[in-house]
């Protein structure tokens, strides 16, 4: 399907809000310029953080065939950059600026087998795809992994819709997902679509490569908002610009540098394109690479970072326990492009 990704901004009214799991709200929107949402599509949305506009992306969980109703779901992340807090304070009748549905994660029709893998709130990107595959009578399995049932949105609805095609893994119930076991089931003609926390996605990416499965059959979407480690406040130094900037927990390094007046180059702001790359000349601590632009080799080498998503952390080992002991904050010295 033609993936036209021209951002058409419009007003949308909040027509419904419901709690669908611990900390997850289902938000129903009525857009002014309806456009049908393809499976895998998302909307960009303007949120207010500290009285400033910021842009956030949310997967379209469901939409009516004519696009007059769009549903998104938002997890209130305690360490969020402020967007999810804003979204959780919305009320029915509020008006928002949103784009028409955009597509970076198209579902290909006609694969022999499908595995849709959702971790936690990642279900929001997979629910619509699963519905379409069901309608097409495709051979699919929807794998939904979470910490505990109460934190897993739409479980009952998904069970009713997908029956035995839904496979649920719950850490609290001792039925955690084994990525290796899952990937062993992925044959030559399986396409795997996933959305979830970075640890899960990294494990799948690694396993996929080890099994030498077709790289183009592994599909994922990253909104660049989770890392291997919790975000910490850190310091970035830019000798060339005579800058020393504090990057707070809820703000990206790119944003912090822009706030300080640095003229930074960037584009996707989700760790895909590599345009915001900066060279690291010194680091006290370690880099939590959250992008998908660098290879494993480049991340290990750590001579550069994509400052739109990646962060500095205090611990040398990266382990959370160590981070607490060494104190902080981490300091990274960079040379921008």
């Amino acid at each position: 399907m033609a993936a036209t990704n021209i951002e058409v901004w419009q007003e949308a009214e909040v027509t419904g809000i419901a709690d669908v799991a611990d900390g997850i709200k289902r938000i129903e929107l009525a857009p002014q310029l309806p456009k049908r949402a393809e499976p895998g599509s998302h909307i960009d949305l303007k949120v207010q953080i500290n009285a400033e506009d910021a842009k956030r992306s949310y997967s379209v969980v469901e939409s009516s065939a004519d696009g007059t109703t769009l549903v998104i779901s938002v997890l209130k992340a305690p360490l969020s950059r402020g967007g999810s807090t804003y979204m959780h304070e919305l009320a029915v009748g509020d008006r928002l600026q949103i784009t028409q549905p955009l597509q970076n994660f198209p579902l290909r029709v006609g694969a022999k087998h499908y595995i849709l893998l959702a971790g936690g709130v990642g279900i929001t990107a997979m629910a619509n795809m699963a519905s379409v595959l069901k309608r097409l009578n495709a051979d699919y399995t929807l794998v939904f992994a979470g910490r505990k049932r109460s934190a897993m949105a739409y479980l009952a609805q998904l069970e009713a819709e997908h029956g035995s095609r839904l496979e649920v893994h719950v850490d609290d119930e001792g039925t955690s997902l084994s990525v290796n076991e899952l990937l062993e089931r992925a044959g030559e003609e399986t396409e795997l679509y996933m959305c979830g926390p970075i640890r899960l996605m990294d494990a799948v990416r690694r396993g996929w490569a080890e099994l030498e499965l077709d790289p183009s059959a592994l599909r994922y979407e990253t909104f660049g908002n989770s890392g291997w480690y919790d975000p910490e406040e850190f310091t970035v130094r830019v000798p060339k610009l005579n800058l020393e900037v504090t990057v707070p927990q809820g703000r990206s390094m790119l944003e912090a540098l822009e706030d300080a007046g640095a003229d930074m180059m960037s584009d996707c702001r989700k760790g895909e394109c590599g345009l915001c790359e900066v060279r690291i000349t010194e680091i006290t601590g370690r880099i939590d690479h959250r992008d998908v632009f660098y290879s494993e080799r480049q991340k290990r080498q750590s001579s550069k970072m994509n400052c739109c998503v990646s962060r500095a952390i205090t611990s040398q080992t990266g382990a959370k326990a160590d981070a607490a002991r060494t104190g902080g904050p981490a300091v990274v010295t960079i040379e921008p492009n």
Partner: peptide, 12 residues
Amino acid sequence: QETINPSATVPS
């Protein structure tokens, strides 16, 4: 580059 941008697709 050493990786593939996950968004890089053309309609088929």
